[in-house]
């Protein structure tokens, strides 16, 4: 059976009530040194630290076991606090690299841009936003205006059952 590279991320945290939540920065630097040949990176906070390395394994289960064992062993050698692991994330390296190039910020559009996508006037857009039951909620409402997820506006455009002509005004009660 062939093997692949996997990225293994382990996060540890001090248990509740533990005294001394500071991670020795020299120990963390020593762990960086020890993990260098394993493509490692270390992060430290108060009462918590984490490390990521790459390991070669035949599957994700094996990578989880060998990677977290290696991190634990080298962390102990470096003098890192022996706190319990609270998270282990494992992902095949090529999958991680594909994820890494995908932007994490969603694409947002303003009112005029949303109107352009839908092919309506800004005024009609405001009517839709205020009155159409399935119009998406804005992600943000700023002083300068609302921002929507572009995907949500495009999805609305696909499902919107447009009625030709001008929208009917609400019926007035005779006064």
């Amino acid at each position: 059976m062939g093997s692949d590279w996997y990225s293994v991320h382990t996060e540890v945290r001090a248990s509740a009530g533990v005294q001394g939540l500071t991670v020795d920065e020299n120990a963390a630097d020593a762990l960086m040194d020890l993990l260098e040949q394993h493509d490692g990176v270390v992060s430290t906070g108060t009462g918590a630290w984490a490390a990521t390395i790459s390991v070669e394994a035949s599957n994700a289960w094996e990578a989880t076991s060998s990677g977290s064992d290696l991190i634990e062993k080298l962390a102990d050698k470096a003098g890192m606090p022996n706190w319990p692991a609270v998270r282990v994330d494992v992902v095949r390296q090529d999958v991680l690299e594909a994820e890494n190039i995908r932007p994490t910020l969603p694409e947002l559009v303003s009112g005029p841009e949303a109107a352009e996508i839908l092919g309506v006037s800004p005024q009609r857009l405001r009517q839709l936003a205020d009155g159409h039951t399935s119009f998406p909620e804005p992600m943000y409402e700023l002083r300068a205006g609302k921002l929507w997820l572009k995907d949500a506006i495009e999805a609305f455009d696909r499902r919107w059952d447009r009625k030709p002509g001008r929208p009917r005004k609400a019926a007035r009660t005779p006064g």
Partner: peptide, 24 residues
């Protein structure tokens, strides 16, 4: 947590991917 940054010339492709994943 604060992320440590590898020093010049001490990283390879997988290491950079792991580091970017931590940033994200």
């Amino acid at each position: 947590s604060a992320i440590r940054v590898p020093k010049t010339g001490r990283t390879r492709g997988r290491a950079f991917s792991n580091w970017i994943a931590d940033v994200r």
